[in-house]
């Protein structure tokens, strides 16, 4: 069972929700797909960490074999190649590793080489399997790391901490999930960002519910959005100093406070009920 936690902007509480649910669930996995700025590991502080380097395939040219036919230059949809002054130029950060240029080269002047783009760290925090994708600074796309992270998801309950927004990295993170938890702030901006991920969840046909985080007194535009669209509200988390302090100290709230343990337990229960309900509705899932 894969539960993706997403939001239209950063800082709404994706990591708070996914870390605490994974810590609470017992024998669960936490996967940080926010590869540009992964932070779940700061809370879990996993032990026995094994690091795997993630690479992509980049073409390398033997200028001596290249005769300047330009088949590769013409083919590349991303324009990662240019032929100037009798030399082939390769722009590695533009390359999307499709391998087409290598297949096409009639003189076999192009070969593959591995270019490291980041790492995956795998470890344990108590009984939680913690997997963290880390993209190197300056790399254009974290997609290969996310694909690798989600390629070998262990059986059992898995929480996927998605990147913020609704771009392709988020789609990749959500694609194989069984349920989406959308985390939203109580502002007009928050409601707008909620709408973005709500549309994404609908586009992918994923059952979903909302966690209203940082709740304050007064009207909550994100709650109004849920009511208008008929979206299930899974939990409300109040804007409290105690939680802020726990977070700032890198502590897992449910491991420190019975009150937060109870709050996230009811959220986990709500998610389980929703997923069971969805499975009953659609046995194909």
């Amino acid at each position: 069972m894969k539960i993706a936690v997403l939001s239209g902007k950063g800082g709404t509480g994706k990591t708070l929700v996914s870390v605490n649910l994974a810590a609470l669930a017992g024998d669960a996995a936490y996967i940080d797909c926010d590869v540009e700025e992964p932070n779940g590991h700061l809370f879990f502080k996993p032990a026995d960490v094994v690091t795997e380097e993630i690479t992509v395939k980049i073409p390398a040219v033997d200028q001596g074999l290249c005769n300047g036919c330009r088949e590769c230059v013409e083919f590349c949809k991303f324009n990662a190649l240019a032929y100037v002054d009798q030399r082939l130029m390769i722009f590695e950060e533009v390359c999307h590793s499709c391998g087409g240029c290598i297949l096409l080269c009639p003189l076999r002047a192009l070969t593959e080489r591995d270019q490291p783009i980041g790492v995956i760290e795998r470890g344990f925090s108590e009984d939680v399997r913690v997997m963290t994708g880390m993209l190197n600074t300056g790399e254009a796309s974290g997609i290969p790391i996310i694909k690798k992270l989600l390629a070998d998801v262990p059986a059992g309950l898995t929480f996927i901490d998605c990147p913020p927004g609704s771009a392709c990295t988020v789609m990749e993170s959500v694609r194989d999930s069984d349920y989406c938890i959308l985390v939203a702030e109580p502002t007009i901006f928050g409601a707008h960002n909620l709408a973005l991920v709500h549309e994404l969840a609908q586009l992918f046909g994923k059952p979903h519910g909302v966690v209203l985080n940082k709740c304050l007194e007064g009207p909550n535009p994100s709650e109004q959005y849920c009511q208008a669209k008929g979206i299930k509200i899974l939990a409300r988390i109040d804007y409290e100093q105690e939680l802020g302090v726990l977070n700032s100290e890198g502590l897992v709230a449910i491991r420190e406070s019975d009150r937060y343990r109870a709050l996230f337990a009811s959220l986990l229960e709500a998610v389980r009920e929703e997923v069971q309900h969805e499975t009953a509705l659609d046995p194909q899932r």
Partner: peptide
């Protein structure tokens, strides 16, 4: 172009 317009 989808990307790499400057190069092309």
């Amino acid at each position: 172009s989808q990307g790499g317009a400057g190069i092309k």
